[in-house]
Design a protein around this nucleic acid. Sequence first.
DNA 1: AATATAAATGAAAACGTTTGCAAAAACTAA
DNA 2: TTAGTTTTTGCAAACGTTTTCATTTATATT
Lengths: 349, 349
Amino acid sequence: MSTKALQGIKGNRTLKKITVVEVAALAGVSVSAVSRAFSNGSCSKVMREKVLCAAKELGYKPNRLARGLKGKSSLIGVLVTDFENPLYLPILQQFSAQIQQQNCHTILVNACDHQSLSEALALVMEYHIDGLIVTASALPQVLVDACKGQNIPVVCFATNSKSEGASAVYCDNFANGKMAAQHLLEMGYTRPAFVSGPVAALTSLERQRGFINTLVENGCQDWQIKEGGNHSYAAGFEATCELLAQPTQPDSIFYSDDIMACGGMDAARHKFGLNVPDEIGIIGVDDIALASSPAYQLTTIKQPFEQMVSACVQTLFQQISKPESGAEQLIFTCQLQQRASTQKPLSPI
Amino acid sequence: MSTKALQGIKGNRTLKKITVVEVAALAGVSVSAVSRAFSNGSCSKVMREKVLCAAKELGYKPNRLARGLKGKSSLIGVLVTDFENPLYLPILQQFSAQIQQQNCHTILVNACDHQSLSEALALVMEYHIDGLIVTASALPQVLVDACKGQNIPVVCFATNSKSEGASAVYCDNFANGKMAAQHLLEMGYTRPAFVSGPVAALTSLERQRGFINTLVENGCQDWQIKEGGNHSYAAGFEATCELLAQPTQPDSIFYSDDIMACGGMDAARHKFGLNVPDEIGIIGVDDIALASSPAYQLTTIKQPFEQMVSACVQTLFQQISKPESGAEQLIFTCQLQQRASTQKPLSPI
DNA sequence: AATATAAATGAAAACGTTTGCAAAAACTAA
DNA sequence: TTAGTTTTTGCAAACGTTTTCATTTATATT
């Protein structure tokens, strides 16, 4: 390896920046040729070889900022509003991994704080991102329109909100609620409760609708609903304390997600001394890592997150490469993952 | 609000892009004036007023890509290698929030997979990031040098590795190991074990060194060490099973971090039917959310992550604005957070 | 009031790419 | 071999900022 290349790597402070023109000079070709050799461009075999060789020699790396000025920025915004739920760590991992696999990078947008969604979005759009993924929340129509205006495709992840013009990848949460209700009834529970997530969360509302509908359909009248606040351990714990402190204690609880269910199970066990599943059945949604741990053994409705993330990224890049292709709705179905937290004995205590 | 502004927001497809020149035209000033009004530039009160007004009218937002071509990109790389530990979700949240507070954005770099650190770093450097934060792993010296060569300041987060030229924010992990040993001995445990993290993790090694040193100093000879593999629930569970299956069962275990300790506690309780803390004491490091839940009640050594993240971001931006200021080592001290998992009764069973 | 200094402004040259256009070179088909 | 076609190549103009430098305008000093 030449001295120059080493300088390129070692980064001599006084070194002139290596750009297309340096590469072009060394290779004895034009700058456009260098550009074409590095991007999609059509050029001869031998030309590409010459350019790549010179580039390697000099340690040249294209400047994505400059590239983004004309074409695509290779930046994908991933907007997250909910950092409470541990679930989002593996999801972020998968998103970033798959985005990198497409030779792009992830701008992580934190919209959980004071900054409203709209502010956060406006700021990240200053980078001229190629696409946007929105997790854990719905995107108001006006913001979807703003993205459309800049030709930025949007995919909502795991949200039931159907924004006009935005793609979405999510589960049939009505069916999930239904599944939870059927399972609890089958297990012999008779006084189920639902603990919701944030009131604004459509996913939670759909689950609630499916759950209650199915209970009513099956003649069960002894149900109740508790607003959980947000999708967090603490919220689940708190809501459960309030539920169980009432005279009309439920004999089973369906939580809008696993992390709440874990909080709820801890409340039932450790604050009220209840036996799970004999005295109270617990069921969640998601199948987070903790759900399968011996401490919880939580029955849950497993969302196929790996596939959902893949579908999300795939749809996004599809729309980036073919802007004329319309928004898609991809709906996944979930499966019941039965564990010990709902194994009620047939003869009630 | 004018029609033009509405178009800007609604994003009429045929709309000409709004740039400095459009703003300059409307305000009746030069493009340089617009630039100065928007960035640091010196300009008169009335000028700034005129420009900002015109910009608002047109819905102008500066293009950060173009800006980055000359000056700073406003992009900060946050490199993560360990997505297994739930701890990193709140940490990512804090990093992204604080970076956004500095009017910059986070490029999340996933380096946990096939992609080596070096590949991942090379790729993200194509965006000409203003600075780099490395979490959950040490950065090899050659990569630090590469960053230095591009004048990109680097701060390592929560790693004991002392790279020449990179700043670092971490805890005194030797002291942490010492603290854990002292606590276990004080609680009357006599046969402690240490479950390590990845063999390459200096944090883990330091904790081990402090732990074993202190045991030896205090005359305890009956200790053992188990390699845990990586910092995950499953690794903690597995390592504990192997430890407890031996004839020489420890009576207490110090885990290199909380998520392993949780896995270990579940193994001890549910696979070996041991009572915590009577038959086995458990202590971790970090104080993750789960540690304080009733299910675990884990004694742990709490790392002041909020302050550490703040210090990290502050140091980074300090070096970005003053490149001549040298690398800093900020070492934090931790505190023991005692909970039920180490409350051994004075009279042993 | 005239000069010296400071502040505000504009013109134009970067920054590092991509891309339309036209010229050149390489093939194909007669 | 010649004309027609396709592929490859280079020139130069974007892309949207910032920044240097020179010029103008305002402020302070005698």
